[in-house]
């Protein structure tokens, strides 16, 4: 089973990297770009086939290590 975890900054947490990317895109002529927020994607391969059990595990992984929940939120996507 494969899973993908998206980790992004919580709303209200300043993202200077996202801001810099936005400025760079504006500088390249992409004038339509407004606010940009940057995050990360983590792909995981998991043994087993129980999607619900995997989701529970992934949630624990996010809480314990993958995300810093003081500043970040996460979303879990499971692909069979």
């Amino acid at each position: 089973m494969k899973a993908r975890v998206f980790i992004t900054l919580k709303n209200g947490v300043l993202d200077p990297q996202g801001k810099a990317i936005g400025h760079a895109l504006n500088g390249l002529g992409f004038g339509s770009v407004g606010e940009v927020r940057q995050g990360k994607v983590i792909d995981l391969e998991l043994s087993g086939s129980d999607a619900e059990a995997a989701r529970t595990d992934l949630k624990a992984m996010c809480e314990k290590l993958l995300a810093n929940t003081v500043i970040e939120k996460y979303e879990i996507e499971i692909k069979q």
Partner: peptide
């Protein structure tokens, strides 16, 4: 709390 990327990058 947390320590984040410096404001000026």
């Amino acid at each position: 709390g947390a320590l984040m990327r410096n404001a000026a990058l």
